[in-house]
Amino acid sequence: MIEWRWHLVWELAPRFVDAAGKTLLAAGGGYSIAVVLGLVLVLAQRTRFRPLTFAVREFVELIRSTPLLLQVFFVFYVGPQFGLVLSPWTAGLIAIGLHYGAYLSEVYRGGIESVPAGQWEAAKALNLSVVRTYRRIVIPQALPPAISGMGNYLVGIFKDTPMLSVIGVTELMHTATAVGAESYRYLEPYTMVGAIFLAISLPAAYLISRFEKWVRRTLGMVK
């Protein structure tokens, strides 16, 4: 049996606070990429150019059905083979942004498909342009049902950032493993990482569901 050492916790605290900041940075950066990329992916699937639609569809499926860990390795190691060296941070953000971009494109797609056909027809009857139809009619209605999915993936991306540790991004997991290697103590570092994740993801999930309700109310879609 092994006892819990509080002094180690206090000793490690500054390093973990720093690492938690980097974890949040990675999650935020990756999510920003994903939000934009997801939009590109969903719009590309809605063009009438069949080969593009097909290619993007399969690409999204490929990303969604293969492990993020593998994608992280792929992005990090493939560049150097062609003379393009990416820093761990760049490769990590690209990989995680790509992965979650594919997921978010599906969330957007669900939102857009939930807008009744009659809304498109009414927009056409009013002779609205395509851009205006999206901006004024479709997106405002597609957004509320998409918010729950978007929120879940925001928490999801945060919880997946430990996978970036494998290419040397110095986030929480990387720090905990480094501490373990230095001090041969695993109990405190790994438990602290778990506790920090819990302390951030639980309130985040709660705030997101509050936000979701607020958006629904504001848009008059109370249900």
Binding site: K159, T161, S165, M173, A176, Y190, V193, G194, F197
Partner: peptide, 12 residues
């Protein structure tokens, strides 16, 4: 289990 990462759980 949903609030922490699979990787953290695996290592733990």
């Amino acid at each position: 289990f949903r609030g922490t990462s699979l990787l953290v759980q695996l290592f733990w």
